[in-house]
Design a protein around this nucleic acid. Structure first.
Lengths: 147, 147
DNA sequence: GGTGTCGTCATTCTTTCGGATGATTTTGGG
DNA sequence: CCCAAAATCATCCGAAAGAATGACGACACC
């Protein structure tokens, strides 16, 4: 703001100097005061309008981020999956376990024997440090490898 | 905008008129041109600044709200809990089941016998239409009675 | 060709879970 | 005070889950 006032004053001074200078430089005609006054008024008004527009433009938009409950799309933490050494097949079994299926149902859905499912379960339980399927599911969700 | 220009012109005209009028009204002194020019410049600049501020104030802030996904704080769907007839104690057991605890651990934590825990489990499983604890947890989360 | 990983399957055994049922105690409201 | 709901505990039994172990074939990699 102070800078704008300074600029305004400087411009005004220059305008005055121009006026005085031109008074001796050109023909002095009647009503010259009105003409010069109008000139100064026009210039300063234009400057004021420009200043107003500039001030308006100085804060264009304020972007306000609003936290809204939204279902964040789940992305599996593949890094930790790899770090734990969980194979794709084991992930598949783990997902079905989390879905609430029994070993038999999982075996039927994947066209393998129930013993195979139990083997996979045991392995993934060991890798997750779980002793029960519910615990395995809980740990998996906390770790970010299950939604 | 047009109105502002009109106001500007009128003010300029009035200023000129004032200038001319005062020229015959008061003493004509030397350097009066500078003084009047400065006056006009000051008035018009003030007007311009006022105009700028007014324009600035006309649209104070343009707020653009952006929806950002946030972790929605879990609120239990008490309506469905009541509709299913799940008692507070059963909810407590269900939460511990979802946390991955075994019946024995739940019994120890709640200072009740394992049989009691099993009874509560059976009841809540029946109310949820589940046959296994993993399935019960899954259904509870889908229904909104567990986070 | 040897090695390692992955997926598969089996057997045995123990633990846990879940269903069914009955009984007792506590508690809150009419 | 009485009733109903809730919470507690028990017993029996079958099903499911889980641990431990061994084995076999497919496949990739060096």
């Amino acid at each position: 703001m102070m800078r704008h006032l300074l600029v305004c004053g400087v411009v005004g001074g220059v305008a005055i100097a121009l006026l005085q200078w031109s008074q001796y430089r050109f023909l002095v005609i009647d009503h010259s005061v009105e003409i010069y006054g109008a000139l100064v008024a026009a210039i300063c008004s234009a400057f004021g309008i420009w200043l107003g527009l500039k001030l308006t433009r100085r804060r264009p938009v304020e972007v306000r981020e609003i936290l809204v409950p939204a279902a964040a799309p789940f992305v599996r933490n593949q890094e930790r999956v790899g770090k734990l050494g969980i194979t794709p097949r084991e992930m598949e079994i783990l997902e079905l376990v989390a879905a609430g299926l029994s070993n038999r149902e999982i075996a039927e859905r994947l066209f393998v024997s129930e013993n195979t499912v139990k083997t996979h379960c045991s392995r993934v339980f060991g890798k997750l440090g779980a002793e029960r399927r519910t615990q395995a599911v809980q740990i998996a969700k906390e770790t970010g490898i299950l939604p």
